[in-house]
Amino acid sequence: MGAILDRFGTDVIIQKTDREHFRIRQEVAVSGQFFGWLVGLGAGVRIVSPQNVVDAMEHRLEEILGRSESPV
């Protein structure tokens, strides 16, 4: 939660979904930097919509995985 508040401020709308999870709805600038920030938060964070941003995140992760499999 702290990383969300640090990034978006206290005006972000937070919806508690259960005892351990919450959901936010926030307009963002979709960019490599945004995806990198999400990856830094780990597996506990995911994009659920809009679908084009979900797809872009998946594509970005596939690119990263593809690079890690090639020889250095």
Rank of each mutant, 00 (worst) to 15 (best):
F35W: 00
G66C: 09
I64W: 06
M1C: 12
R23T: 07
E69C: 09
F34C: 01
G40V: 10
L65G: 08
D11N: 05
N52Y: 12
N52H: 10
I47T: 09
G44T: 07
G9R: 03
V53E: 13
R67C: 09
L5D: 05
R7C: 00
I64M: 15
E63T: 11
Q51T: 12
L5P: 06
G40S: 13
E69Y: 12
W37C: 00
N52P: 07
Q26I: 05
T17G: 00
V53Q: 15
A29K: 05
E62Q: 08
I14A: 01
V72P: 13
S68F: 12
R67K: 09
V53G: 05
R46T: 07
A3M: 01
I47N: 13
F22A: 10
F34L: 05
E27P: 03
R67V: 10
K16S: 04
R19S: 11
R46F: 08
D55H: 11
G42S: 05
V12S: 07
G2T: 14
P71R: 14
L61N: 08
G66D: 13
K16P: 02
G36A: 12
S70R: 15
D55G: 05
R7K: 09
M57L: 07
A43H: 15
H21R: 12
H21T: 04
S70F: 06
V28Y: 00
D11Y: 06
E63S: 09
L65F: 08
S70V: 08
A29Q: 08
I24K: 01
S31R: 03
V45D: 11
D6Q: 08
V53F: 10
L41T: 02
V12Y: 07
T17M: 07
G66M: 14
S31K: 04
H59V: 04
G42I: 04
V39P: 00
T10Y: 11
P50R: 03
S68C: 06
L38D: 01
L61S: 14
I13Q: 13
T17N: 04
H21P: 02
I64C: 12
A56N: 06
R7G: 00
G32Y: 06
E58R: 12
L65E: 11
H59M: 11
F22E: 05
D55E: 15
R60L: 07
G66Q: 15
R23S: 10
V12D: 10
R60N: 12
A56D: 12
G2Y: 08
L61V: 14
P50V: 02
M1D: 12
Q33S: 11
E20C: 03
R25L: 09
D55N: 15
V53S: 14
R67Y: 09
L61K: 13
V39I: 14
S31W: 05
F35I: 00
L41R: 03
N52C: 04
P50K: 04
R60I: 04
L38S: 03
R7P: 01
W37E: 02
E27S: 06
D6K: 05
R23L: 10
G36W: 11
E58T: 08
A29G: 02
P50F: 06
A43F: 13
D55S: 09
W37H: 03
R67M: 09
R25K: 14
S70K: 14
V48M: 15
E58V: 07
G32C: 09
